[in-house]
Amino acid sequence: MRIGELAAQTGMTRDTIRFYEKVGLVEGRRLANGYRDFPPETVAWLLYVRTAQTLGFSLAEIARHGEELHEAPDSAEALSSLFEEKIQAIDGRMAELATLRTELVARVGTGCPLRATGRPAITGLSG
């Protein structure tokens, strides 16, 4: 199928599909006239990519695990493993954000929110 039809079926722009092709997420062959031609299963894959992005997966993560998921005998098991890894990463980030929030709350009303409060500074922040 041509890129316009693929765009229409997935709700993505042609530019998005071209970008995904450039970074290796999809592969189309070139016809003699130079048009891109994508296999029909590309629609399902692009919808998968969109869903994975909605769930917080980066394009790099999707690309890294894409082939593995296509070839997994039990994709539910493979997906569950990826979800568990993502949950752990999210939990770690939430803990970092909670620490940052606590530090910011402590600085409210200090006259200069960047001035040190007498407690050790959070790593990566300058006060």
Results as ranks from 00 to 15, higher is better:
Ala95Gln: 11
Leu82Trp: 01
Ser81Ile: 14
Glu61Trp: 07
Ala60Lys: 05
Ile17Cys: 02
Arg14Glu: 09
Arg36Cys: 12
Leu104Arg: 14
Arg93Phe: 03
Val108Ser: 07
Ala72Asn: 05
Arg64His: 00
Tyr35Gln: 06
Asn33His: 04
Leu69Gly: 00
Leu97Phe: 10
Arg14Phe: 01
Thr99Gly: 10
Arg30Gln: 05
Leu47Ile: 08
Ile87Thr: 13
Gln9Ile: 00
Thr99Tyr: 06
Trp45Phe: 02
Glu84Gly: 04
Asp74Arg: 08
Ala116Gly: 12
Ala121His: 07
Ser58Asn: 05
Thr51Ala: 13
Leu79Ser: 13
Val108Asp: 05
Pro39Ile: 03
Phe57Leu: 07
Ala95Leu: 07
Arg119Pro: 06
Asp37Val: 10
Leu114Thr: 14
Ile90Arg: 12
Arg36Pro: 09
Gly24Lys: 12
Pro120Asn: 14
Ser75Cys: 12
Ala78Gly: 07
His65Asn: 08
Gln88Trp: 11
Glu67Trp: 11
Ala98Lys: 03
Tyr48Thr: 14
Gly111Val: 04
Ser126Asp: 13
Gln53Pro: 02
Arg36His: 13
Ala72Gly: 04
Leu100Asp: 05
Ala89Asp: 09
Leu31Asn: 04
Ala95Ile: 04
Thr10Glu: 03
Cys112Ser: 15
Ala7Asn: 02
Ala116Val: 07
Gln9Leu: 11
Leu97Met: 14
Ala78Ser: 10
Ala78Arg: 08
Tyr35Asp: 05
Glu27Tyr: 09
Glu67Val: 11
Arg29Thr: 14
Glu96Arg: 13
Ile17Ser: 03
Ser81Leu: 15
Ser75Arg: 15
Gly92Pro: 05
Ala106Gln: 15
Arg115Pro: 02
Gly24Phe: 09
Ala89Arg: 12
Gly28Trp: 08
Asp15Ile: 11
Leu82Gly: 00
Pro113His: 15
Gly4Pro: 02
Ala78Glu: 06
Glu5Leu: 03
Ala8Thr: 00
Arg30Cys: 02
Leu97Val: 12
Gly124Val: 02
Gly28Pro: 08
Ala7Phe: 03
Tyr20Thr: 04
Ala89Tyr: 06
Arg107Gln: 02
Gly56Tyr: 03
Phe19His: 15
Thr102Tyr: 10
Arg115Ser: 11
Ala32Pro: 02
Ser58Glu: 03
Gly4Lys: 08
Ile87Ala: 13
Val108Ala: 10
Arg115Asp: 09
Gln88Tyr: 11
Thr13Trp: 01
Ala60His: 04
